[in-house]
Structure formats: C-alpha cells, structure tokens
Design a protein around this nucleic acid. Structure first.
Lengths: 232, 232
DNA sequence: CGCGAAGTTGAACATAGTCAATTTCCGTGG
DNA sequence: CCACGGAAATTGACTATGTTCAACTTCGCG
C-alpha cells in the first residue's frame, strides 16, 4: 500500500484552507464541507491514479508536486503537466469514464480528493463550483497551448531555458530554488533525453549562467538565460 | 475587409441547427436566440482573431476548418489546434482579457460569434450552458494532452502517420479524403518542416501506402499506416 | 565503506533541418 | 483553350541537432 489517509475515512477536507474555493464565499465553502472529500497523503513516487483507471474524482493538490504523464504504445513517456500546490488535476473525472493520463507524486504530497458524484449534491451551489472548475480548466488549456509551442517550435536549449525561467519564477524565492525534478523527469517533460538535459546544464554551469548544489539551482545570469529561452 | 456578415447586424445565429446546444433542451435554445450572437462568414485565409486582441467572444464553428496558432518571439509558428465544424474555439474569451493565440480560416468558414457579455444574460440557463462549455473545454484539454505526447515523444513518421489516421477517421468518408491543409500547415501542426512532410508523403506514396490527387488523399494500406503511427 | 541509482561525458550515429535547384500546380489573362 | 507567372511542392546534397551506446563519476543511503 503506497497511499495512506492522513486521518482515516471521510476526514474534513481542508479545501478552503488553501483558498481555492474561498473566492466563492462562505455558503459554498460550507456546502463543500458536506461532500465526502478526503484528505490524502501520498509518499514520494507513489501513484495517485493510473492511465485508464476509473475517473471518479477530481483532485486539488494541497502540498507538493504532482506529475501527469502519458505513455506511447512503445513505452516512451511524456510528462504533460507538473501540478503545483493549489491547482486542480484529474479534470477527466468530470467528463470521461477513465483517466487518459497517470498522476504520480513527485516527493511527498497532500491532496484533496473530491468524488465527482459528490458534486451533484451541491444543489444550488453546483453551478458556481463548476464555473470555477471551468475557469481553471481554460487556464490549463492555455498552459497546454504554450507547451505545444515549446515542444513543436523550439530547440533543446530554448525548451530547457524557458522551463527553468518558469520554474524559478513560480518559486518566487530568488536565490537558490529547489529543483524537485530529476534529470530524467525534466527530459520527459521537455521531450528530450537525459543526456541532452545534462549537457545543457553542464554547459550553462561552465558559462556561469547557473549554479547547482544539492538538488537546488541558482540562476546567476538571468539576462542570458532569458535570451537562451527565446532564440538560439 | 476580409470578413463579411452573412446577413448584416445581429442576425439570428443558427447555433441550434448544428445541434451543439440542442442537448440542453428547447428553453435554453430559445434563450440562446436572445444573445446577440452573430453569424459570420470568413473567406479562406482570413483572420478571425489575432493573438493579443481583446477576447470578448467565444465562437462555434458552423462549417469549414479553423487553425489556431501561436508564434515564438523569433517568428516560428505552431498550429495548436485544427477546429472542426461543431466545435467551440476562443475559450480565452471566458477568462482572459486577450486571446493567447490566433484563429484563421482554412478555406471558407461560417462561425457563430457569441459575445461573452451576452452569456451573463442567460439567467437561470447560464449554468447549463457553462457546464456544456466546461465539458467541451475538458475534452480540448484531453486532446491537447494527446498532442503533447505526439510532439514530445514521437518521431516525424509517427507524427505524420497518426495525424493522417486521425484526419481520415474524422472525415469518416472512406476512400478519398480531402486534405484541407497545405504541406506548410501540416508541418506547422506537427512541429516539422515542409521538406520532411513532403519526403514522408513521397516515400509512402512510393511504398503504396497512400495515394494523392487534387488535394485529396486515399489510404491504401491502413495496417501499415497505423503501424507507422505507433513505432518506427 | 560499499552498493545502486542518478548523473556526466565522449564518440559514433541518425534524424530532421537547411539551402538550393527544379518541378508541379493553379489561377489569370491573352 | 492555351500560355504565362507565381506560389506550393518536390528532390537532392549537406549540415546540425540531438539520440544512442557505453564508460565512468558522483551522490545518497544503509
């Protein structure tokens, strides 16, 4: 068993504590408490759901990182999204019978699992929650569009550089930023090989653009990195 | 002026005739008639909206094909989606101030333009329409995920082969299928160059897998094409 | 300390891109 | 109906980017 419920059974899901639904106002927050949402904890590397497993819930990531991935028939896998705390994943649960991708924990995570069946019980508030989900979904779609541009129209240095720029920006901590992903995961995310990623890191470290220590990176020359992200 | 309204001003938009919203039932169909949706006709190659233009409407494609594209700062463009009749595009209108991609007609098209402001006036039906849009959006997201796998984890022959398989399947007409897109557009869609696409076509025609005449293709050997789509 | 996994590095190779020369296609006008 | 002109597509030769394979090093952990 690679998953454990943090406090067993239908524990009160702390959705609101993260502020995802707070914008909807208190009555809805209360209604959400009545869903049988569960707070779950997964240890590093464990699977939240597999491709083609029954899509019965959507998830809100409370803490940590989740990677969503798809695999070709010949076994090459592509990470389609890295989910951050506060984001929703598992949209498939709302329209499809099965998930079309897998979700796995990168490091230890806490998620809130919301059974889709429960959403039906929201009554008058259902519409507002669905609207919020719609908005989130559209944002995901925009993000996916951006990634299609990355994968379809950019070369390896541009892909890695803009990935690093995004990653460090999201981390907001300037200075050292924990790089949660392994070389292999970065490669799978960018549609490259481990070796290519490794060589680019090495080259940029040599050039003084980056430094790395203990799974963390620090950008020394933002200007050059951003330039690499845009052209050659 | 490269666009013209088919019958000037706020013409009755034939949304329902396409059956997109019919699943919602008659009262909602009627309510939709009261939006100031416009039926528009664009000639081949003209632009429905540009990247970064004000996102004030969503569109339903009534007839033809639309290509949605993004461009890198150095001018390489990537087609992120080919929209077919009956599909919604311009989801950005619902959440963002500006479109993050462009939309252009491939051949002549008819679209129904629904101002987002109008959706607010749907009153009690708003929720149901938004739910439908949410469902469509999630399906687009799944489709985008699939394309990320194509671009990130597959080689040129696999990309082109699976594109052709999809294209011909969607056209449902077995036998000759009109290939609406130019080599350049196919290349932009698959993240390849015109030359690579051209060479693959040539090679497959030589091998008797395909035939082509007058902008239409015919798959002669489905088994081999599907095999090409999956592995090497 | 030692083992296994992750990461690095080099050399050879292959895939796809670039550049350039033709050829084909198609609409326009004679 | 044919001829012309321009755009699209094809083809070849060369190049470059990134992959593959393999050896080796580093890191983390028991």
């Amino acid at each position: 068993m690679n998953t454990k419920k943090s406090q067993g059974g239908k524990s009160r899901c702390p959705i609101c504590q993260l502020g995802i639904f707070t914008e909807l106002g208190r009555p809805i927050e209360d209604a959400l408490q009545n869903l049988d949402a569960e707070s779950l904890n997964f240890m590093a590397g464990s699977t939240v759901y597999e491709t083609a497993s029954a899509a019965t819930a959507i998830y809100v990531l409370m803490h940590g990182y989740v990677k969503l991935a798809k695999t070709t028939l010949i076994g090459k896998s592509q990470i389609i999204r890295i989910v951050r705390a506060g984001e929703i994943f598992g949209f498939d649960g709302l329209v499809a019978e099965y998930y079309n991708h897998s979700a796995a924990a990168v490091g230890e995570i806490d998620v809130c699992r919301i059974p889709v069946a429960g959403l039906q019980d929201l009554g008058e508030h259902k519409a507002e929650v669905e609207r919020l989900i719609m908005v989130r979904c559209i944002k995901e779609l925009q993000h996916a569009d951006e990634r299609l541009l990355e994968l379809g129209a950019k070369r390896s240095p541009e892909r890695l550089a803009s990935f690093l720029v995004d990653w460090c920006n999201a981390a907001s901590a300037n200075g050292w930023v924990p790089l949660v992903l392994s070389r292999s995961e970065i490669a799978q995310f960018l549609g490259l090989t481990i070796e290519t990623v490794s060589r680019l890191f090495a080259s940029w470290k040599r050039d003084g653009i980056l430094r790395e220590q203990k799974q963390s990176i620090r950008v020394m020359d933002w200007q050059r990195l951003k330039l690499l992200a845009q052209s050659n």
